[in-house]
Computed example of a mutant assay.
Amino acid sequence: MLLNQKYEIYPNEKQKEMLDRWLQYCRQTYNSALLDKQRKYNRSNESYTRYDMQTQLKLDKKKYSFLKEVPSQPLQEVFLRLTKAFDNFFRKDAKYRKLKKYKDYNSMTFPQFCFNNKGNRYAMSFSQNGKLFNKKLGEIDIKLHRPLEGIMKQLIIKPQGEKWYAIFCVERQAVPRTMDSHNAVGIGVGLNKYAVLSNGMEYENPTFLREKEKQLKKAQRKLSKRKKGSVNYIKQVHRVLHLHEKVANQRRDFLHKLSYHLSKDYGVIVVEKLNIRNMVKNRKLSKSISDAGWGMFRNMLDYKCEKNGGALIKVEPHFTSQDCSSCGERVKKSLSIRTHICTKCGTVLDHDYNASVNILHKGLEQLLVMN
């Protein structure tokens, strides 16, 4: 299995300028290849392949000397990224690709990495001092707060706010899965309670964005009064970014801890296959749904279950909150009604708890079919 391990790096000002410049060259190469692909298809109805892009890059390097400043690996990875994007589009998993703006292209990938700086063909490596090393950048300080475990596959350099991060993609041997139906739990996510388990446990919704909303509004009002491009404007932009980064970090920390404990405690976890993209179209609930981070939580559960030898089962969400978990009678009710009262057997349960039990039943049925 592949896992990403993220570490903060500390480039100096000169290195930051060079990294930012490389990012923009990669973005321009991406946009240029996208336009070439569109032009070729419109003229001759033929595909502009990755080989064609690499051939054009060789010609561009002779014409534009600034492209030689960037290591070849991140530039070539741009074409792989564009090819995958179009493959996803044709599979109807993504929208048609658009030209990338400055803020949209925020990472570059080094597909090869080594632990010493002897090899000339490696664009990034570790120096003898335990720092990131590149011949053009020099040594970059890195905070290795946990050991790198597994076979190194690639390195991603990414700015986030005012900080820079190195993300190592490592391959580890997955723990064999144990489909233990006796140690299974269903999870129903919501906005009042973040998660309700089928065994009755509840986790409160921390609503990090809502708590910082007043501060964000105040900071953004101040930003709107500053003269665009001035020193005070730039300072205020950084304050707003810092608040958003704080909220994102709090949410990510909460979800990491919750998903870790659940994947450790249960062998089989069952969740709903929610279409979050459609759910956020509801203008009254979109902010709260985005703040909850259900999609991120599901992705974390997925890889952590695999890492710990468990299994994550996704079931269709149809009628999980309507059906009675005791007798199966369908009791129609709106989302505003938070108590399930069965008209057939008289069962009275919390709305979310009833849904989580139904989710577990669906997951166990699916597990029997799988086995």
Rank of each mutant, 00 (worst) to 15 (best):
Glu139Pro: 00
Cys345Leu: 09
Lys235Ala: 04
Glu13Pro: 02
Asn299Lys: 12
Asn205Pro: 06
Phe126Pro: 00
Ala166Phe: 13
Ser288Asp: 02
Asn249His: 07
Lys103His: 11
Leu368Asp: 13
Pro176Ile: 03
Asn275Cys: 01
Met108Phe: 07
Gln54Val: 02
Arg146Gln: 15
Leu144Arg: 03
Ile269Gln: 06
Arg338Asp: 07
Thr207Arg: 12
Lys84Thr: 07
Ser288Met: 04
Gly190Phe: 06
Pro11Ile: 06
Glu306Asn: 06
Ile337Gln: 14
Lys58Ser: 15
Gln24Ile: 01
Asp265Gly: 01
Phe319His: 09
Asp52Lys: 09
Leu34Trp: 04
Gln24Gly: 13
Gly161Ile: 02
Met300Trp: 00
Thr49Arg: 07
Ser356Glu: 08
His145Gly: 03
Phe113Ile: 04
Tyr122Ile: 06
Lys333Phe: 05
Ser125Ala: 03
Trp164Val: 02
Met152Glu: 10
Val315Asn: 01
Arg330Asn: 07
Lys246Leu: 09
Thr49Gln: 01
Lys118Asp: 15
Asp323Val: 02
Asn106His: 02
Gln220Met: 08
Thr347Pro: 00
Val70Pro: 07
Val237Leu: 14
Ile289Gln: 08
Asp36Cys: 12
Gln154Thr: 10
Leu255Val: 05
Lys63Asn: 11
Val357Gly: 08
Arg338Trp: 03
Ala248Thr: 08
Val247Gly: 01
Arg50Gln: 10
Ile151Gln: 14
Ile9Leu: 01
Val237Ser: 07
Glu202Lys: 15
Leu223Val: 12
Thr109Tyr: 12
Pro71Leu: 11
Gln250Phe: 00
Arg121Gly: 00
Ser72Ile: 11
Cys305His: 00
Lys344Ser: 14
Leu209Gln: 06
Tyr48Asp: 10
Arg50Ala: 04
Asp104Leu: 05
Leu335Lys: 07
Asp20Gly: 13
Lys281Leu: 05
Ser107Val: 00
Phe319Pro: 00
Met201Gln: 15
Met296Val: 11
Leu216Ile: 10
Val175Phe: 02
Val271Arg: 06
Ile156Leu: 12
Lys98Met: 06
Leu99Met: 14
Gly190Cys: 04
Val196Ile: 14
Ala195Met: 08
Gln73Asp: 14
Leu368Glu: 15
Ile234Thr: 09
Cys305Lys: 07
Cys345Tyr: 05
Asn120Met: 01
Lys264Gly: 02
Asn282Cys: 02
Lys222Phe: 06
Ser290Tyr: 09
His340Met: 05
Trp294Lys: 08
Glu149Arg: 14
Pro159Trp: 05
Trp22Asn: 12
Lys153Arg: 15
